[in-house]
Amino acid sequence: MSALESVLDVVGAVLVVLGALLALAAAIGLLRLPDVLSRMHAATKPQTAGLVLVVIGTALLLRTSVDVWMLLLVGAFQLITAPVTAHLVGRLAYRSGGVRPDLLRRDDLADRTDSSD
């Protein structure tokens, strides 16, 4: 194994560890944050960034394999779908009272009286 290859191995493994730490932070946020909308943030941003870091790290470790393309596709797909789910859930959460009003500093949406219920 050449020097370059072992450097790539370590860099890739470090990226995987960083991604795992972001996933851990997301998990802690999911437990600690006060309401559904806040937990949504933890499940969207650090989780997605963590997954993308793990994808890049794993791709660096595999390098020559054709499976690298599949992994990159997984990362791209997660980047596109995570915000869609976040918006769907966020919208439902606001409408069904999944937000604690005492923790909202301001609420511009409350002023707009919506037609549906």
Binding site: L33, P34, L37, S38, Y94, V99, L103, L104, R105, R106, D107, D108, L109, A110, R112
Partner: peptide, 8 residues
């Protein structure tokens, strides 16, 4: 607990 805002 952290506070947030809903911004238009």
């Amino acid at each position: 607990p952290i506070r947030s805002s809903i911004v238009a």
